[in-house]
């Protein structure tokens, strides 16, 4: 086989690869494109079923309506309010999970005390009990504690995290013993060591985990659906799904599409902007 044939074959291979990838990317973008375009037309255009393929001129009107008033058959809460709720919920869940996992892992790795392994396995058990398998009894607990329809109820039950604890434990085990010895010689106690050595060393892991957990928090569905029926606390993902109702043709689809765009922009932005941390977080939490 001469050099020219090899070269031609390689070029043909590369062309194929790019073609397949381009089609893949197009399929990935198609639903987003249709939604983006739809969010810039008026209700009648979409209701008639003339699916537009190019943007129209109603963008400002639609996004203003969605942001300030909401829409759909089921009058949703204004998207501005729902976005605020989602943002607060996602940040509290991600921050809470990271905070309590950091200190639990620190306790398990740097101390010996009775019940250490029991505590570790108890945390580990939460992996096996997703909300979906304990819906009713968990809801009863929420009622007993008057946490229904509160931001605390929306976030606190979700901040236990076996994966984050496992990840930090794994990482803490790689911190050399010499560091602890040096700290002890310098007279630093455990809290000082945590603040001045362990936390700064964990920054990369915290950033990577934050991206993953922010998206986890933002995308919560069943939990807010169960414990929130106060419109003031509605999150955008649940609010959007409620706007669809039973999917009737006569609906303010343009406003719904604008709300859909608003619902997906923040998490998508976080993933794309923090891609490096995201990939790291994803591959490490699953190890």
């Amino acid at each position: 086989m001469d050099a020219a044939t090899t070269r031609r074959r390689r070029l043909r291979g590369a062309a194929w690869a790019h073609a397949v990838l381009a089609i893949g990317v197009l399929i990935f973008f198609l639903p987003i494109w249709i939604t983006l375009v739809g969010s810039t037309h008026d209700t009648a255009t979409i209701g008639r079923g003339d699916v537009p393929l190019l943007p129209g001129g109603e963008a400002i009107a639609n996004y203003t309506a969605a942001w300030n008033a909401g829409g759909g058959r089921y009058r949703s809460a204004p998207a501005g309010l729902m976005l605020g709720n989602s943002l607060l919920m996602a940040v509290l869940i991600a921050g809470g999970k990271i905070a309590i996992s950091l200190i639990s892992a620190y306790a398990v790795v740097f101390f010996r005390f009775p019940g250490r392994m029991l505590a570790f396995w108890t945390i580990f058990l939460t992996l096996m009990l997703p909300v979906e398998v304990r819906i009713i009894p968990t809801f009863q607990v929420m009622v007993d504690l008057s946490l229904v329809n509160t931001m605390a109820g929306l976030t606190i039950p979700l901040i236990a995290s076996a994966t984050a604890t496992l990840l930090f434990r794994q990482f803490f085990l790689t911190i050399p013993d010499e560091y602890v010895e040096a700290a002890k010689i310098d007279g630093a106690g455990p809290l000082r060591f945590f603040r001045d050595v362990v936390l700064p060393l964990s920054v990369t892991n915290i950033a990577a985990l934050f991206v993953i957990l922010f998206i986890y928090g933002w995308n919560q569905y069943l939990w807010p659906l169960l414990i929130v029926n106060d419109r003031g606390l509605e999150t955008i993902v649940v609010g959007l799904a409620k706007m669809i109702g039973s999917g009737d043709t006569q609906n303010e689809w343009n406003v719904i599409m604008a709300t859909a765009v608003l619902a997906l922009v923040p998490p998508v932005f976080v993933v794309v902007a923090m891609q490096r941390w995201f990939v790291k977080g994803l591959t490490e939490t699953e190890k």
């Binding site: 990317v25 973008f29 998206i215 995308n219 649940v238 959007l240 799904a241 997906l264 998508v268 994803l282």
Partner: peptide
């Protein structure tokens, strides 16, 4: 261009 749908909520 391929990883962003991960961030989209299942309901969305």
């Amino acid at each position: 261009m391929l990883i962003w749908p991960y961030a989209v909520a299942p309901a969305v």
